[in-house]
Nucleic acid binder design. Structure first.
Lengths: 256, 256
DNA sequence: TAAATGTATTCGAGCCATTCGAACAGAAGG
DNA sequence: CCTTCTGTTCGAATGGCTCGAATACATTTA
């Protein structure tokens, strides 16, 4: 464990509030009672926290409980908008989705996790296994692997260490050695592939978007049914389109 | 002032944390120094809060400061997904945007404010003056007025009292009497119109989505350039489409 | 290179706010 | 009407938050 174990003197009151918010996040609404059973704090303590959260506008009182307000959505959307990659990638993602007919994602890395910050569906898009804002293990996505391929070695190591390589399908890379080989293969072609590694019947391809130092700041990926994403389209056509869009975005980022 | 002035004994530590988050929300990134000048707390206090927020994953340390992480986006998106209206309205909004070629919104009310929770652009959509998650005064939007028209009188009164009727253009309704007249007119036609009331050159039309007790739980609206949204299309065709979609959504909500 | 300036981070001590538990109120159900 | 369950209020105590000062670190200036 080389990872930092956090601040020496955390603000425990704030930690409690975060626990409450994360509890509410999972459910449509919760009663005070439910929270007292889930959290090791006195009923009155949680109640007072909730009152404060209501006062600040982040929690709403419903007929039979409490839920998070859409002020959380406002914060999230603003945070996304503040990302350099988002604004320049958005329209290009849209057009690529139209061209390919498949789901196109813009993904960034955060705390060692892959986070889709924007997605656009094409004409034929099927239900996908990720959604905006979700934090997904890097090695399970084409975009995540593409980013890993262009991160400093020590970062890659610490990410693997921190969140081990969980298997979700037969094809998921769960061995560090295999992953390292995969990453150098990705660097060769500049494209990462996902062949049913995140879910059955689903394929994906992604390319990193890099800064002036050649370090990944995100990735663009296309995902869809394995049945459609195969053959030359998958291994040649899509990569070409992805490399083009990534290059365009890189240029936009440099000169804006 | 009939509004509650908040809890008698708020958790001030939590309030401080919220202030920090809201400060970060506005900017791409902030240094600790900036925050000490903006907030009346000791440098070490803010520092300790930030450390805790980093530990929980909601704040990231950048090269030269701090910013909110995309965990906030995750929370916001989840909150939206938990909304009953969102999931049923989404696809219908998409199709209406395709049909009309204009921007279509799904809006709900929260704390007396109109909040667009989902928007889909059509073929000809122009840049709009609101975005997802933003909290907008009810009287400035077609959707907001449509919702107000189907809220209990006392709620409407308290909303007007709480957030007064700010003018943003010549046409914005800023007088309560005029607004009440407008609301009864909306109830007659079941459709609300916005004629350059939220921004110049922009028109909009919206209809409320109501529950079994005929109380608004949200609204669907179409907005676009005044030049296009006019004449019979604006006053007849769009309202017909909106009423249909709203009715469909109401049925979906009742039987699901 | 060193000094100087401006940051961030650590730490001790005091005191205030948080926390708890218990008591109260209010709703729901039998 | 009583019982049970959930939410709300309140006093007291103590433990954690806050502050300010001191330290460490980075960046600029002479």
């Amino acid at each position: 464990m080389t990872a930092d174990s956090g601040p020496s003197r955390p603000v425990t009151t704030l930690e409690k509030a975060v626990e409450i918010v994360e509890l509410l996040k999972g459910e449509d609404e919760l009663e005070l009672r439910d929270m007292t059973t889930e959290l090791p704090y006195a009923k009155s303590t949680i109640h007072r926290h909730l009152e404060t959260l209501i006062d600040t506008g982040y929690v709403l009182r419903t007929e039979r409980g409490y839920r998070l307000s859409l002020k959380t959505l406002d914060v999230g959307i603003q945070t996304r908008r503040n990302h350099a990659l988002y604004s320049v990638a958005k329209e290009r993602v849209d057009t690529l989705a139209k061209e390919t007919g498949e789901k196109v994602w813009c993904v960034i890395e955060e705390n060692g996790m892959a986070v889709p910050i924007y997605g656009h569906s094409g004409e034929n898009t099927v239900q996908s296994n990720v959604s905006v804002g979700e934090h997904v293990p890097m090695h399970q996505m084409a975009a995540g692997k593409a980013i890993l391929a262009y991160l400093p070695d020590d970062r890659v190591e610490s990410i693997i260490e921190q969140h081990s390589l969980a298997k979700v399908t037969e094809n998921t890379i769960s061995d560090p050695e295999t992953l390292y080989e995969e990453l150098s293969r990705i660097r060769e072609k500049e494209v990462a592939f996902n062949r049913e590694e995140s879910g059955y019947r689903l394929h994906g391809a992604g390319t990193a978007v890099r800064n002036e130092e050649d370090v990944a700041i995100g990735a663009i990926s296309v995902s869809g049914p394995a049945r459609r994403l195969q053959g030359e389209l998958f291994s040649e056509e899509l990569p070409r389109q992805l490399l083009e869009i990534a290059s365009d975005i890189e240029i936009d980022l440099l000169y804006s």
